[in-house]
Amino acid sequence: MTKVLLKVENVSKSFSQGMGTLNTLLGKQDISRVLEHVNFSVKEGKTLGIVGESGCGKTTLGKAILGLLTIDHGRIFYEDHEVNRMTRRQLRPLRRHMQMIFQDLDAALNPKLRIKYLLKEAIKVHQSGLTSKQVEHRMLELLELVNLNKDKLNQFPFELSGGEKRRVGIARVLAVEPKLIIADEPTSALDVSIQAQVINLLKDLQDSLGLTYVFISHDLSLVELISHDVAVMYQGQIVELGTAEQISQTPKHPYTAMLWSSLGGGNQQLSADFTEMNSQETIDMDVTRESRNCPFVYRCPVYQQQGQPAVCLASEKKISLIEQENGHKVACYFPLHTR
């Protein structure tokens, strides 16, 4: 049994919006709950894929794991360290083990520094004792790891193409020899052919270095390809959690099925049924997050099909992930029966 590297327990986070003077005086305050009772764990050397639409809290979750954000409730464990209780100084040595690949290619690299310097800086930050020769050696090693040409070293980030910038970003992350990498939409800004290169690179690195990934993306088919386990998020909650195979072959939550049907992949029979169901309703996203139990209820075709049961809207017990079979968990009162 491999050991659990990362454990997220019951994590919640909310941001308040519209805190202007007038709103404060009137006692109005908009609180948007970005994460609600999120639970999962990642085993060493495995990949957890987190999939969901924009605004569902994927990135916030990634930042919370790294301790870049304070959370309201819950606990996050990296090995035996409770990340959310640690001070910045205590976190510093841990940062070497946990790294993040950010979504924005250009914002992640200082535009005024040459690639050479960017890499050296990353190598030296956690290993101050290295001689310049060792740093040089390590830099060339990194270049080889990410298949980047040596003559790019003297160039600036803007001279590189998207795929090359992404590689430099990955090399910088690898420089500190992390165990856990959180990849936040690493390919969303890249073309399909380049995307395939980066995905293959990430897979190779996992095989050779034994890395653990949390792979955040909106693309379900991509997540399924790279992940061992998949968590589907909707409006700050995990609505379905299972192995990649379970999620693709027997999705239980209506939202997961909807994602598959919109891609036109996965279980063909199911997605065909679902498209038909789906076409009857056209509710757009702008509904308030309050006054519901299940976050998906306003867009849910099953809810309509079941005759709008009250339990989805309000219930004494909050909806939570319930195990169906073999660790496949789903947060739905009427899970889909497939096969």
Binding site: V192, S193, Q195, A196, Q197, I199, N200, K203, D219, S221, L222, E224, L225, S248, G265
Partner: peptide, 16 residues
């Protein structure tokens, strides 16, 4: 290079 069905099932690499 699209993550299509067969490549996902094989858990292999994407063609590049």
């Amino acid at each position: 290079s699209m993550p299509n069905d067969s490549s996902v099932k094989a858990k292999g690499h994407l063609k590049v």
